[in-house]
Amino acid sequence: MDTRRMERLGLDTSVIGMGCWQIGGSWGEVPESDALATLHAAADAGVTFFDTADVYGNGRSEQLVGRFRRERPAGSVFVATKMGRRADPHVAGAYTLDNFRAWNDRSRANLGMDTLDLVQLHCPPSPVFTTQATYDALDTMVAEGRMRAYGVSVERCDEALAAIERPNVASVQIILNAFRLKLLEEVLPAAVAAGVGIIARVPLASGLLSGRYTADTEFAVDDHRSYNREGASFDKGETFSGVPYDVGIAAAQEFAGLVPEGVTPAQFALRWIVDTPGVSVVIPGARNAEQARANAAAGSLPPLSASQRDAVAALYDRRIREHVHASW
């Protein structure tokens, strides 16, 4: 497994991490035994970075990650969690020090950690990113020993750029995959210049880039790929990267044609992200141990060639750009 430095965190992380939304909820049910086996399979394959959130399964994901962490050798697992989506209503005014402390207390209990490794604001309303009080409160949380560092998870490139300007923001989590390329223009160069880590989420466009789905694929009613295609529950960019499903299926079929022999479309998609300058770690989800191992294997594949990257860019321009580029 290749590793990469996150400068502001002072952390060397595996380039392939694991996103733990799937083991919490909103992707159909994953039994506890399967979830733990998936986490351990990822770690056994060299994954060191695990990303969760307090709202995934209403705390279930954090609890499972905490249990898993206690079962691994000390210091071998880095846990990033997120806070803010518990606010009801989810408005900028809810992002206060008192609420941060309450959310943080809950996450520390779920994870069984006195000091959290990394806490990210979980896609807050845009004004939060330009409010000084937000960062003052986060600095206070670090000073109180509640967390080692903080970052942000964002929907939009302008939100990422606003956060990168802040001196103590350690990381920005943002959607990046072969169907979402806008952040290559400004966000990634700015992050490199500032030493801010980039955590790439939704790397397979909610599974589209795995090549496993067709126009007739049906998803469970409790799977966000059924109920959130138009953003009914949260930003629609989180579901299939905001690409209309029929467009995404056709583009994914063409994408699969670019994949070399012996590599799966998912691994090719992950390696494309790993090879993108400025990316620190990519966090695919997994529902079982086999998926976790396959994802991790992308971290040791050879880099993509220039012609392969050019082909991905051309596919994006031809099929995807008009649907997503102006929106996020």
Score class of each variant (00 low, 15 high):
1 M>G: 13
2 D>M: 14
4 R>H: 08
5 R>N: 12
9 L>T: 04
10 G>A: 01
12 D>C: 04
13 T>G: 08
14 S>L: 05
17 G>K: 01
19 G>C: 01
25 G>D: 09
27 W>D: 11
28 G>K: 08
29 E>N: 15
37 A>Q: 15
39 L>T: 12
41 A>D: 15
44 D>E: 15
46 G>T: 03
47 V>W: 01
48 T>R: 06
57 G>E: 03
58 N>I: 11
66 G>P: 03
66 G>T: 06
68 F>N: 07
69 R>I: 11
70 R>M: 14
70 R>Y: 09
71 E>C: 12
75 G>D: 07
77 V>A: 03
77 V>I: 09
78 F>K: 02
79 V>Y: 05
79 V>E: 03
80 A>K: 05
85 R>D: 02
85 R>Q: 07
86 R>W: 12
87 A>H: 07
88 D>L: 12
89 P>W: 07
90 H>N: 14
91 V>M: 04
95 Y>R: 03
97 L>Q: 09
97 L>D: 08
101 R>Y: 01
103 W>T: 01
113 M>G: 06
113 M>F: 13
117 D>R: 12
118 L>M: 10
121 L>N: 02
124 P>C: 08
125 P>L: 10
130 T>S: 11
131 T>E: 05
133 A>F: 05
137 A>E: 10
139 D>N: 13
141 M>D: 11
142 V>H: 09
143 A>P: 11
144 E>Y: 13
145 G>M: 12
147 M>C: 13
147 M>R: 12
148 R>K: 15
149 A>H: 10
151 G>Q: 10
152 V>K: 09
154 V>W: 09
154 V>M: 09
155 E>G: 10
156 R>L: 14
156 R>Q: 14
160 A>C: 12
161 L>G: 03
162 A>P: 07
165 E>G: 08
166 R>Y: 02
166 R>S: 01
167 P>Y: 05
172 V>T: 04
172 V>E: 01
173 Q>W: 10
179 F>W: 10
179 F>L: 08
180 R>Y: 08
180 R>N: 14
184 L>I: 07
188 L>F: 01
188 L>K: 00
198 I>N: 04
202 V>W: 03
203 P>H: 08
211 G>T: 00
212 R>P: 00
213 Y>D: 08
213 Y>C: 08
214 T>V: 04
215 A>L: 14
216 D>M: 04
218 E>M: 11
220 A>S: 15
221 V>G: 11
222 D>F: 10
224 H>Y: 15
225 R>A: 11
227 Y>W: 15
227 Y>A: 11
228 N>Y: 10
230 E>A: 15
233 S>Y: 13
237 G>S: 06
237 G>P: 05
239 T>H: 05
247 V>G: 04
257 G>R: 07
258 L>W: 05
259 V>R: 02
259 V>N: 02
266 A>T: 07
268 F>G: 01
270 L>E: 08
272 W>Y: 14
273 I>Q: 06
280 S>R: 00
280 S>P: 00
280 S>K: 01
285 G>E: 02
289 A>L: 10
303 P>L: 09
305 S>C: 01
309 R>W: 08
311 A>V: 02
314 A>S: 15
318 R>M: 09
320 I>P: 04
324 V>N: 03
325 H>P: 04
